[in-house]
Write a protein that binds this DNA or RNA. Structure first.
Lengths: 338, 338
DNA sequence: CTTGGCACTCAAGCAATTTGAGTGCTAACG
DNA sequence: CGTTAGCACTCAAATTGCTTGAGTGCCAAG
């Protein structure tokens, strides 16, 4: 009972602080939320919450603001994530429909997410390793130059140049292409190393050089740095929290330009549900005063990649979680159509 | 003679202001640059320069800062662009070499440019219209679904889905593919509408449906929104000019997220040499207090696209022009190897 | 356990004052 | 005529002292 009210007080503090961005005092709380008790009682609760580390005072004569721990508790136990409205569903659907290719889907998604959450949005390209080969194409662009094109069932396309030391005949190329196609089409990318292990040996001696080069390039293209493509959008929203806040934007922008950081943010995500990392939990230098809300997208049990938003720790968590989840659902659907 | 010294004074003011970011006074000028005259004389020159609109005073008791017009004069008549050092050449070369595909080249270039200029960098993908068809591939991913892949000689790849209402046989597809390949390979993209005008008619009646769909999609992919891909990097540098300056970063970030704005910045560029647009000259809302330094890249007379940097009007123009030009040269070289 | 009362703290805002960098003007100089 | 020293003047920015009031913690009464 008493515990319950304390949580209510914390919720009220978080909600108020998120909207006003100013420390909230006991009086303001009593007025704005009908907690049914006087400011003095709220002060007692606040003292307890502060003792437990959920809220803090910037200075003696100020109100309280939630700590990272406070936000954590709020997210875990207090907030309820409402489903998005029909209007929002429609808006998302409309925004994402009519994409011409995967790049287009990614760009639209990141814009959409940035717009609805009013935060910085991140969208990772569908993982190659987790998808299957739709098609492989092998083209001679000159007698000694080949172009290998990989197409995944997500619509993702990778291409690599191959330089051959000896000229290649169309006949030989066609031979390799045919074998390759029948071996790998429809297979999952992560199985390719195994599948192609004996590919070269099984070829006629005269095409072995080609086969070897192609297999090497293909495996390289299918595994190397391949899940690293991430699109960012909405960075302008960072500037909104002008300088008033401990959120200095330079380190944040810097962190978001680091591939390693992005990979960490998008990679370490629970396979189901929405992941929220608050402040220090991001474990990234420069993002100490931001929170990251992410989720995976792609068919259940076979998630392709992650998407999410980055914002100040005093963000609207329920709203962000809601939007991230909804967008992930729609992207999943769109990608499956590709 | 007298005119000469005035220009020297302007140069000194620009150089000092660019490094210190503070209004410069007559005394400081006399000390730091050996102009051979006393502060009083410099004051007279400054009064004249102010009269002509090249410099201004933020307030009565402050030094002078260059106006946009002042920077203009500085860029046009005063600054000399030194060639880059051997070390820098090496660094650029090393940074760009070893790219695996076009996307990689673009990403590396934008990072490089942002790093050396310490500004926001913009790099536009090579224009399709200005390049030629290296290869076209047409693949059935199901009986009624085709995938069209366009490969330009710049290494750029575009792909589109085609939905057919009736099933397509491999035979018919192969027929269309063969005709298409022999018609368009090696041709410049902007000639395609003309070249393919009668393509469908010339086909056998039974493949006309396919031909029509393919031609329509191909022309669409080759012309529609196709030069709009621009990569941005180094936005963190914007935050460096903290809030101290009239350069509020939010409008700048917002502008840089607008496709239309980017196109305008990258599009309206002289075909040769480095273009500098200062302050208002950018003609973009939100970029009034920034300057844009751009140049085209790609073989002379057949430039493929633009690249450049965006920074505060009080930027190091000679340095930026130098770097932009040097990077453009190297990118041209790299792209030709692709 | 709750609440009104009250003394206490301290950031933030305001006004008054000082400081000094930088200017424009004038008169003298070569 | 261009240059320069001298000097009065201006005004942003920094410093200081003061006031205000939001918000607190604690205590005693309900």
């Amino acid at each position: 009972m008493l515990e319950d009210r304390r949580l209510e007080v914390l919720r009220a503090i978080v909600e108020d602080y998120v909207t006003t961005h100013e420390p909230v005092g006991s009086k303001a709380l009593a007025e704005r939320h009908n907690l049914g008790v006087s400011p003095a009682t709220i002060r007692n609760d606040m003292a307890a919450l502060e003792e437990e580390g959920f809220i803090a005072q910037p200075h003696t004569s100020a109100g309280r603001i939630p700590t990272d721990l406070g936000y954590r508790l709020f997210v875990d136990r207090i907030s309820d994530v409402k489903p998005i409205s029909l209007g929002e569903r429609r808006a998302i659907e409309q925004f994402l429909s009519g994409s011409v290719d995967l790049d287009d889907v990614m760009v639209r998604t990141v814009r959409l997410l940035a717009q609805v959450t009013r935060q910085v949005a991140l969208v990772q390209y569908p993982s190659l390793t987790r998808s299957s080969v739709r098609h492989v194409e092998l083209i001679a662009t000159s007698t000694t130059r080949l172009l290998l094109i990989l197409i995944a069932d997500t619509g993702r396309v990778e291409q690599r140049q191959i330089e051959m030391s000896a000229p290649v005949t169309e006949q030989n190329l066609s031979d390799v292409r045919g074998r390759l196609l029948s071996d790998v089409t429809g297979k999952q990318f992560f199985l390719l190393p195994e599948i192609l292990e004996r590919f070269t040996e099984k070829c006629d001696p005269e095409v072995r050089a080609i086969a070897a080069a192609v297999v090497a390039t293909l495996l390289d293209a299918a595994t190397e740095h391949v899940d690293e493509r991430i699109v960012i959008g909405g960075t302008a929203h960072l500037a909104r929290y002008g300088e008033a806040f401990p959120l200095a934007i330079q380190p944040v922008l810097e962190a978001l330009e680091e591939q390693v950081v992005l990979m960490r943010l998008m990679g370490e995500v629970a396979t189901s549900g929405v992941t929220v990392r608050i402040g220090q939990e991001t474990a990234v230098e420069g993002l100490e005063s931001t929170s990251v809300v992410t989720t995976r997208y792609g068919r259940q049990g076979q998630e392709l990649a992650s998407l999410g938003v980055v914002g100040p720790t005093h963000m609207d968590y329920p709203g962000a979680m809601r939007s991230v989840q909804a967008v992930a659902q729609y992207v999943t659907r769109i990608i499956e159509e590709q």
